[in-house]
């Protein structure tokens, strides 16, 4: 059952089309959203999170129309949102900030609310710093504070814009565990530049570029597109779209391989680079022609 349906949704800022008639459906589970900077990922997430209204098309979130005040409120009651960037009001401790956000999410009963806030603080591993002021926390800890408020009440829809930014590997591992559990029942949409996170967490991946969907399918399907197009060599090959020196000292080439090269298994990053690179080339060719 689809929880999110976007039908030919468009959003423009001035003359720039941030989203160009995008159609997409989401069901419970974890979906990764990949794309280069300026691809329209944040715009799409903000529309789903009711922070922004679409200019064109129809949006249905959790069976509600966020274009109406009542629909918007209903969506917000069942939504958890981690924006790309956020500040914090001065003076709040970790606990008091999440508690305040819980009130803003209609948790009026203090006993239940405090229990839920404590649960969230434990979940994201911030129990030790719960009485500390948010201003005194590291960037990664602040990111987890935002995540904790998003997870309050086990929302039906989690919209996460680069949630792993600033997290160390251990924190990212913990976050994957948390999101993995959430994705068992909720619809989780994660925008990120970390293909490793998508590969580790997501069943499905959507790649956006220039406000359009380039790919929508499973992670395995996307990786399969890069099979036979990644090889290791002693030198950077001219036919490679992307190439970099690996830890072993050999060059990992991604592109159209020459014959008789040492092909290796591609990963999601290879497939993503190929997809976005080719789309960029096509766009350039279209522009030239």
């Amino acid at each position: 059952m689809n929880t999110v349906t976007l039908t030919e949704v468009g959003k423009s800022f001035g003359r720039t089309d941030a989203l160009a008639d995008v159609s997409l459906t989401l069901a419970p589970g974890i979906t990764g959203l990949l794309g280069p900077n300026g691809a329209g990922k944040t715009t799409m997430l903000r529309i789903l999170a009711t922070a922004l209204a679409a200019d064109r098309g129809t949006v249905s979130v959790l069976g509600e129309n966020p274009g109406t005040p009542s629909g918007r409120t209903e969506v917000r009651r069942r939504l958890g949102y981690v924006p790309q960037e956020t500040g914090f009001p001065r003076g709040f401790t970790v606990f008091s900030f999440i508690d305040y956000m819980a009130i803003l999410k209609n948790w009026s009963d203090p006993t239940r609310r405090h229990a839920e806030v404590r649960r969230m603080v434990d979940l994201v591993g911030l129990s030790d710093v719960a009485p500390k002021r948010v201003a005194a926390l590291s960037g990664g800890q602040r990111r987890r504070v935002v995540l904790a408020q998003a997870m309050l009440g086990e929302p039906d829809l989690l919209v996460l814009d680069e949630p792993t930014t600033g997290l160390d590997p251990a924190q990212r591992g913990r976050l994957r565990d948390v999101l993995g559990r959430a994705g068992e029942t909720a619809t989780v949409l994660i925008s990120t530049h970390q293909t490793a996170d998508v590969a580790a967490l997501c069943e499905r991946v959507v790649v956006l570029d220039g406000g359009r969907i380039l790919f929508d399918g499973t992670v395995v399907e996307l990786v399969r597109q890069a099979e036979g197009r990644v090889w290791l060599a002693q030198e950077r090959h001219p036919a490679a779209r992307h190439a970099w020196r690996t830890g072993s000292g050999r060059i990992r080439n991604v592109g159209d391989p020459p014959p008789d090269v040492d092909l290796i298994e591609p990963d999601l990053e290879d497939a993503y680079l190929l997809l976005v690179g080719e789309a960029g080339s096509d766009s350039a060719l279209e522009a030239v022609s």
């Binding site: 500040g87 009001p89 408020q149």
Partner: peptide, 16 residues
Amino acid sequence: TSLLRTRELAGTVPVG
């Protein structure tokens, strides 16, 4: 004005 710092979050909660 303090909540203006977190307007992106505060703008997506049910309490207006």
